[in-house]
Design a protein around this nucleic acid. Structure first.
Lengths: 184, 184
DNA sequence: CCGTCAGGTTAGCGATCATTAACCTGCGGG
DNA sequence: CCCGCAGGTTAATGATCGCTAACCTGACGG
């Protein structure tokens, strides 16, 4: 709908990188402004608060993960394919948005209450999307175990921003194979 | 050597839990003191700084992981057993020290320079311990890939503090099976 | 022309924090 | 008896931070 020019998205992208490398509390609004070529309180022309920057980042990625993930799962002909496609999508996302992945599970608790609740809900739905496919493939599996497995798979895939030891295509392949092995 | 009575270890344990749940920067020395039954600056009778508390926590767990891990690997008759034992040890450690695991990969960057370097070195050695066993088991595997795999396995296992969906013994079993599957 | 308003600027306020200073207290050894 | 010190206390300091206020400027529609 709204086409807020450009600064806004620049701020979001810059904030993601700074938050990822120094932590939400380790970045001052002055730092963030400076990294965007403006300085300090000019941020408040675009966001109501520093927390709002974080909130917008985290809510939007949680929404994207869940929405596209749901599409992929629905488009798959059977649970096994669905799981492979979910892994593929998640790996791709994690590799393209390393900083966001880091911020998401590190600075989660610095969110304002409302956004924190929203992110938690979206994440739970995403976990259950995975858990559901796992249980379709293996009806013996109970729900708590399926959820734990989804969580562990996310941990595996999300570890990628911290390592960066391999070029992206190779990394993608390794993570895909390992995740499927873990979920086998 | 030194048997500094008790407060010191109480502070370390309390700090681990507080740092884990609110982040290093989210906990003031007043908070930490209060949680120990003393208040504020009394901490400085036991540690030279807030950073020193963090440093001691993280250095000591990195040392323990590496030292015991090395023992286990050396005691194993073959690489396949070594890998299984390493996984077992790491899962056990992660389940027994959830807060430390969280702090280790969240607040790593708040360490003073010297300690950060030490932790990095220990972690790299630990990664290489795993990578070495993987390459003994499968000589085709190149070193960077083996390292990436070790990293991903840590991500899988270390995800456990964030989920807490299953009782410890079941969780142990699930993580052990998944990690071996991922590394297969 | 001129008013407005988006998007900047700098100065400053109030809170919070890590750390230091100065002081108190109880206890064990000589 | 008293000294010294381990382990507390409260008060103060200086830095940093998020955010607000007040002001500037240039583009643009009428």
């Amino acid at each position: 709908m709204s086409r807020p020019p450009d600064r806004r998205t620049q701020i979001l992208a810059t904030a993601a990188e700074l938050f990822a490398s120094r932590g939400y509390h380790g970045v001052s609004v002055a730092d963030l402004g400076a990294a965007c070529g403006i300085s300090g309180p000019a941020l408040y022309k675009h966001f109501p608060s520093k927390q709002a920057v974080l909130a917008e980042m985290l809510v939007s990625i949680s929404e994207e993960l869940l929405q596209v993930g749901t599409q992929r799962a629905e488009a798959a002909p059977d649970p096994t394919t669905a799981i492979s496609d979910l892994v593929d999508w998640h790996v791709d996302f994690a590799l393209r948005h390393r900083p966001l992945i880091v911020v998401q599970d590190r600075d989660w608790e610095s969110l304002p209450e409302e956004a924190r609740e929203r992110v938690r809900t979206l994440q739970r739905e995403y976990v259950d999307l995975w858990a559901g496919q796992l249980r379709l493939r293996d009806p013996e599996l109970d729900l708590p175990t399926a959820r734990a497995m989804a969580h562990a798979a996310f941990g595996l895939i999300n570890s990628t921003p911290h390592s960066g030891l391999l070029p992206d295509p190779e990394m993608h392949q390794v993570l895909h194979r390992m995740a499927l092995g873990a979920l086998s």
